[in-house]
């Protein structure tokens, strides 16, 4: 088996006095889709956000344990968080385009990295939008405001925006939860395509979605990692009773 892309070791997280994650250890494989499932408030989104240190922004968060990306502990004092986030991209639950044009949205990442060559920027924007399957829909209105796109289009544009920075890992926090079934299907198709080149971690509350798109699934409950394994196994013959109860819809 390949060396896992991300390894966490005893990752524990406190919001002030409240423990939100309890000693999570997990190996996330490279260029596959890993899904986190569990009832809301179980810590799956919190865990996702520890993987690119987005929790740093929240006051009173205390984290112990290790997160190793390519065997590098990203909580090491020597690590540059800004560069880390360039390698570990993120797509959020609610699509969050900037109030700028579609072009400016996608070119944002390359620009802050010092890319000013206009031709090169156009190239990056085009290829990113193509990778996110949205190029055909927006190519004639690249300079219109991104706010004018539909919810599903906005979310795919946000994915394109994340891709433009050339990450190796993409974290997706319930990327389709606010979308209609058709847009959701498009996103899922996109995820399937992206895993050829990227390591993808996706949080979802939709179990069918997890079963459809992921290779590996982790089930969280009350801040604990209950079960972690091949998606097929988790959804057919889970080891733990709690997992079985959750996926058969008996609670949550």
């Amino acid at each position: 088996m390949k060396e896992p892309k991300i390894k966490t070791r005893d990752l524990t997280l406190f919001y002030g006095e409240k423990m939100a994650l309890n000693a999570i250890s997990m190996d996330i494989p490279e260029k596959e889709v890993t899904a986190f499932i569990g009832p809301s408030g179980c810590g799956k989104s919190t865990f996702l956000r520890t993987l690119n240190r987005m929790n740093d922004l929240i006051p009173n968060v205390k984290i112990t344990g290790e997160v190793l990306v390519d065997s590098l502990n990203i909580y090491d004092k020597q690590i540059d968080v800004v560069n880390l986030r360039k390698k570990v991209g993120m797509v959020f639950q609610k699509s969050n385009p900037f109030t700028k044009s579609i072009f400016e949205n996608v070119a944002y990442g390359p620009k802050i990295n010092g890319m000013n060559n206009k031709a090169k920027l156009e190239e990056i924007v085009e290829s990113s939008l193509k990778k996110a399957f949205i190029w055909e829909e927006v190519k004639d209105r690249l300079h219109d405001s991104a706010m004018g796109l539909s919810g599903g289009q906005q979310q795919r544009m946000c994915i394109a925006r994340a891709l433009a920075v050339e990450p190796e890992i993409i974290l997706m926090d319930e990327p389709a939860s606010a979308l209609d079934p058709i847009s959701t299907a498009k996103i899922e198709e996109l995820i399937f395509e992206l895993k050829k080149s990227y390591t993808i971690v996706i949080v979802t509350h939709n179990m069918q979605q997890a079963a459809r798109v992921s290779d590996v699934t982790a089930f969280f409950y009350l801040g604990e990692l209950i079960e972690f394994g091949k998606t097929k196994k988790i959804f057919t013959t889970p080891d733990k009773k709690q997992t079985e109860e959750y996926i058969t819809g008996r609670f949550g």
């Binding site: 990306v69 390519d70 590098l72 990203i74 004092k77 020597q78 690590i79 540059d80 800004v82 560069n83 880390l84 360039k86 390698k87 390359p110 990295n113 890319m115 090169k120 190239e123 990056i124 290829s127 193509k130 990778k131 433009a164 920075v165 050339e166 190796e168 395509e193 050829k196 080149s197």
Partner: peptide, 22 residues
């Protein structure tokens, strides 16, 4: 998939993630 454009120009190594003073 066109992966040839790499604008950040570094790989995931200890050096590229070393804390930078800005």
């Amino acid at each position: 998939m066109d992966n040839s454009i790499n604008n950040t120009g570094f790989v995931f190594t200890k050096e590229s993630l070393r804390k930078k003073f800005r």
